[in-house]
């Protein structure tokens, strides 16, 4: 009998022990997040000033900043959105509304695969497709690489969001004699618009943090450049260069640039969370 009781006690101890261990795992993840964020904040805030935000990179010792990198990132992200959002949303609508045939299934599978393709591979692809024929790196190549990363993400989130729109809504409109495209355009898309918008925002957050696909497509630039046919600086590549540079002053600038980047990305993520709160 006491044997039984000790078994019983042991089972309960094991149970509460495992509960504790899982809690420690969760605590560990949160701790990592907070540690990384606080390093970025503490080390970054010291070097941020207006000069830093508008200057271009300068030789070591003469200051310098990330003004042109910010502009480059904005321009390439913009290009990626102009190309990626319509294609991604269009493909998503197709997959949701007509995608149950072989073509749809293939595209869905390929989109999922493309999401899993390492982003550096996308860089190689654009390098051989755009950079080699053009003879030089450019903002265009960088923007295209980001667009390719964006398209499958937007397509799949759009599809999921549209699938959440109840069929009864479609049927009600169709029953009134509306053609299919009007139903999709005027009823389904607006109903799914919050979800599609948040999906797009997350995709933007994702590509604004991408570095690998820009390394040899957009390359970098030390100057302000507003033309897509020229090499273009970006925040992320600039962070990489500063971080791997030999001088302490560069490292400081890397942290400061990171603070800008991470603030933007966290802001988008938190905003999305806020917009979709009712779903959770």
């Amino acid at each position: 009998m006491s044997n039984k009781e000790s078994l019983h006690r042991r089972r309960k101890i094991v149970s509460s022990l495992t509960t504790t261990i899982t809690a420690v795992c969760a605590f560990f993840a949160i701790a990592v997040l907070l540690i990384i964020l606080s390093y970025i904040f503490v080390r970054g805030i010291a070097s941020i000033n207006l000069q830093f935000l508008v200057d271009t990179p300068k030789p070591v010792g003469e200051g310098g900043g990330i003004g042109n990198a910010i502009v480059g990132s904005v321009l390439m992200t913009l290009l990626a959105c102009v190309i990626g959002l319509p294609i991604g949303i269009g493909a998503g609508v197709y997959l949701a509304e007509f995608g149950e045939n072989l073509f749809g299934k293939t595209v869905r599978f390929l989109a999922d695969t493309l999401i899993g393709v390492p982003s550096i591979i996308v860089g190689i692809f654009i390098y051989t497709l755009v950079v080699l024929p053009m003879g030089r790196q450019s903002g265009l190549a960088g923007g295209l690489a980001l667009a390719i990363i964006m398209i499958p993400i937007v397509a799949r989130t759009t599809e999921e969001m549209i699938r959440l729109v109840p069929d009864s809504m479609r049927e009600a409109a169709l029953a009134l004699g509306a053609p299919q495209w009007r139903v999709t355009w005027n009823i389904v898309l607006p109903a799914a618009s919050t979800g599609i918008t948040t999906g797009a925002m997350l995709a933007i957050a994702r590509i604004s943090g991408e570095t690998a696909p820009l390394l040899f497509t957009a390359l970098n630039s030390r100057f302000y450049n507003y033309f897509y046919d020229q090499p273009m600086a970006s925040l992320t590549v600039q962070i990489y260069n500063y971080a791997t540079g030999p001088f302490d002053v560069e490292h400081k600038m890397a942290w400061a640039a990171t603070l800008i980047l991470i603030t933007l990305i966290l802001a988008i993520n938190i905003l999305v969370r806020f917009l979709t709160r009712k779903r959770f």
């Binding site: 993840a29 990384i36 970025i40 943090g209 991408e210 990171t258 993520n269 969370r273």
Partner: peptide
């Protein structure tokens, strides 16, 4: 679970280059 889950999700939102920077110096 809701806030903890969200914070874990945020870890996935941190760009690779930022992990690299933190990796080098911390």
């Amino acid at each position: 679970a809701t806030p903890v889950g969200f914070m874990v999700e945020l870890l996935a939102a941190i760009p690779s280059v930022v992990y690299g920077l933190w990796g080098i110096f911390v």
